[in-house]
Write a protein that binds this DNA or RNA. Structure first.
Length: 504
RNA sequence: GGGUCACUAGCUCAAUUGGCAGAGCAGCGGACUCUUAAUCCGGAGGUUCAAGGUUCGAUUCCUUGGUGACCCA
């Protein structure tokens, strides 16, 4: 038995698995295939509920219609000559009844070899039990896929979060909520696409591997292309490519795809995460605020059926018109309690940052200090949706300057539940200004800031051809799904979150 | 990177002051034709995360390491 030897070698053999493997060998000896591929179902479980959920026992009996279903055995209650179990497919669960008198002694004995976790096919008719539960009465039975490992405890389920993430397949089998979360995630992404398509945006795909990683302040992953003998970076954002498309005349574009950032892991950060970015020519950041309210409330309505969503004990109101719009500096004062004489004064600002326990890097600009104060004093307090706009130019190297005040930009970030959900701005399309901002970033990079931008000559060249005035936005999809599924950790909304390799 | 906590049977969890490592579920054998956390009887299942140390004796105390969770940077 090669399987036993392999498990033994990995020190994973326990008595339960051993018994199952031995049982499987018995089945093989009797000529029963463990992994056949000739079973076809004609009905999914949800269909049975949809069609017969309300049908009376009399009507079920009168019809006598036979159905074939398939799924995993997830619970089991066995008597001497009769057995009840629940069968689970992708659409739901239904109880199945198997009796010796219906199947015949030989088939019933064979059926009794079924283990919890096996995938089986059943042909049968519907009836109602004494308690009224819709149940399938087995007329024919077939093992479809043998399971060699025991499922977690039936009542408490799988609690260990590490196992839930490492063996997500197992989590999905036994934790209905997990499947539900990823169905919501799918609905959210589908609705975002639908919304943007309706508004005339076109979905595109731009490079995930870039020779100059741009569009965000973050540390990239590095890789290498052998044939071209060149260093490549996994993208930290698609922004600069999407804006090249604006230059090319694609006036409304979006991309939903993965970004990669070589940074720490936390309940809010996974090294690879999904971002929606969209760009809209002849619009500005205020148009984006309106669009965002509409988009978020519609996605919530489609995915959850409401625009007021519970998150970690708070009710977050995404209804259009309920969102607050507040200038960045005003938020420092009104929400953070920092008076203008402090936040406009470099030394006072620096002192306050230090007092709050944040490090100050030599040569850091006022805007960066203000941003640190914002992160500490304002962001955690923004529970309901807030657009914070007019960010300092120092920390917004790709945003258009405000026409009345060159020190601030026409940029906003969207906050709720004390977290950043989106970043958006009227795009900088002046190639001379853009070159200057890149040069500033290069200086910061040379001074040791690993997150500062690279110079991107081709991007500046594109702007020199003329990019129409536009506004663009990035939305963190994982965080949006966290909000809509009331998940405290980003790992709950990523199927396979990054973990250290399992040690033998 | 720092701090706190956790790691015991396949799963969910116990174990008094340092004194024979236990239960429920799953699995195995038996009884049982309407159960749904089925019930009843019987037996089986352990490198207590790892390596050191203290001790007559360590799941328990100490050190180091591993993995994870949460908080902070």
């Amino acid at each position: 038995m090669p399987m036993l030897e392999a498990l033994q070698a990995k020190d994973e053999l326990n008595s339960v698995i051993k018994t199952r493997v031995e049982k499987a060998c018995t089945l093989l000896d009797e000529g029963i295939p463990l992994y056949p591929n000739d079973f076809h179902r004609d009905t999914e479980i949800q269909d049975l509920w949809g069609r017969f959920g309300e049908t009376s026992e009399e009507d079920l009996e009168a019809s006598g219609q036979e159905f074939t279903v398939a799924g995993r055995v997830v619970s089991y209650r066995s008597f001497g000559k009769v057995t009840f179990f629940h069968l689970q497919d992708r659409t739901g669960r239904i109880q199945v009844y198997a009796a010796r008198d219906d199947l015949g002694t030989e088939d019933y004995q064979l059926f009794k070899k079924t283990d919890l976790g096996d995938i089986v096919g059943v042909a049968g008719t519907l009836f109602r039990t004494k308690t009224g539960e819709l149940t399938l009465k087995t007329k024919g039975f077939k093992l479809v896929t043998k399971s060699m490992r025991p499922l977690p405890e039936k009542y408490h389920g799988l609690k260990d979060v590490e196992t839930r993430y490492r063996q997500r397949y197992l989590d999905l089998i036994v934790t209905p909520r997990t499947t539900e979360i990823f169905k919501i995630r799918s609905a959210v992404v589908r609705e975002l696409r639908c919304f943007l398509d309706e508004k005339g945006f076109m979905e595109v795909e731009t490079p995930m591997m870039q020779s100059i990683p741009g569009g965000a302040t973050a540390k990239p992953f590095e890789t290498y292309h052998n044939a071209l003998d060149m260093k490549l970076y996994m993208r930290i954002a698609p922004e600069l490519y999407l804006k090249r498309l604006l230059v090319g005349g694609m006036e409304k574009v979006y991309e939903i795809n993965r970004n990669f950032r070589n940074e720490g892991i936390s309940t809010r950060h996974n090294p690879e995460f999904t971002m929606l970015e969209f760009y809209w020519a002849y619009a500005n950041f205020r148009n984006l605020m309106d669009l965002t309210e509409e988009m978020f409330s519609r996605v919530a309505m489609k995915a959850l059926g409401t625009t007021v969503v519970p998150y970690q004990g708070e009710m977050i109101d995404l209804t259009v018109g309920k969102w607050t719009r507040l200038p960045f500096h005003e938020s420092l004062e009104k929400v953070g309690g920092v008076p203008p004489e402090v936040y406009t004064d470099y030394d006072k600002c620096k002192a306050l940052v230090k007092e709050k326990g944040e490090k100050v890097v030599e040569g850091e600009k006022l805007g960066k200090l203000q941003a640190k104060l914002f992160d500490i004093l304002v962001e955690p307090k923004l529970i309901q949706p807030h657009f914070i706009y007019h960010y300092p130019t120092d920390i917004s190297p790709l945003s258009r300057r405000n026409e009345d005040n060159p020190d601030i930009t026409d940029r906003f970030e969207l906050f709720m539940t004390g977290r950043e959900m989106a970043n958006a701005f009227s795009e900088l399309n002046d190639p001379v200004d853009q070159r200057g901002r890149f040069e500033e970033q290069v200086k910061e990079k040379e001074a040791g800031d690993e997150e500062a931008h690279f110079m991107d000559e081709d991007y500046v060249r594109a702007l020199e051809y003329g990019m129409p005035p536009a506004a663009g936005q990035g939305v963190g999809i994982d965080r949006l799904v966290m909000l809509l599924t009331d998940s405290a950790s980003i790992r709950e909304v990523i199927l396979f979150p990054l973990l250290r390799p399992e040690v033998a």
